[in-house]
Amino acid sequence: MENPYLCPVCGTNRMRFNLIEQKARPVKKDPRTGEIMEEVDRADPLHIPYRGEDVRVQCGVCGVVDTEERFIKTAQHESHARKG
């Protein structure tokens, strides 16, 4: 999170962002009612653990949501383009 961001869609925002922290909650649900029946132990061999990003970023100007890496790479690419 200590890297500059640039919105990959609007291409102008470098300052206003929402950091969206994702925390997976493994559960078992009743297939008929949708009620959560229990929390699943992360060591359960029949349950695949969440492998997505811990943080997603939303542009505070245009509202696009994407990976933090995309915002960082866009800023790096734009910085290299200005130098070259």
Rank of each mutant, 00 (worst) to 15 (best):
E78K: 05
R82V: 03
I36F: 03
N13E: 10
A24H: 12
N13K: 12
K28Q: 15
P49K: 09
A24L: 09
M1P: 10
C10E: 06
T12Y: 07
E68N: 02
F17N: 02
H77T: 13
H80M: 05
V9W: 03
V61I: 12
D41E: 12
I36P: 04
G63K: 05
H77V: 00
R32H: 09
G84A: 01
G11W: 01
V57S: 03
R25I: 10
V64G: 04
P45W: 03
N18S: 14
V65P: 06
E2N: 15
Q22F: 09
T67V: 00
E69P: 00
G63H: 06
A43T: 14
E21R: 15
V57T: 05
P49V: 03
E69H: 08
K23C: 09
F17K: 03
R51A: 10
T67H: 14
P8W: 08
R70S: 08
R32A: 13
S79G: 00
Q22T: 11
V9G: 02
P49Q: 10
R14V: 09
R51L: 10
N18Y: 14
R25V: 11
L6Q: 12
F71A: 02
E68I: 00
G11E: 15
D41R: 07
T74E: 11
R25M: 07
E2A: 15
K28I: 09
R42Q: 11
N18A: 14
R25W: 04
R51Q: 12
D44C: 05
V65M: 11
P45D: 10
V55R: 09
V57E: 02
V55S: 02
Q22P: 07
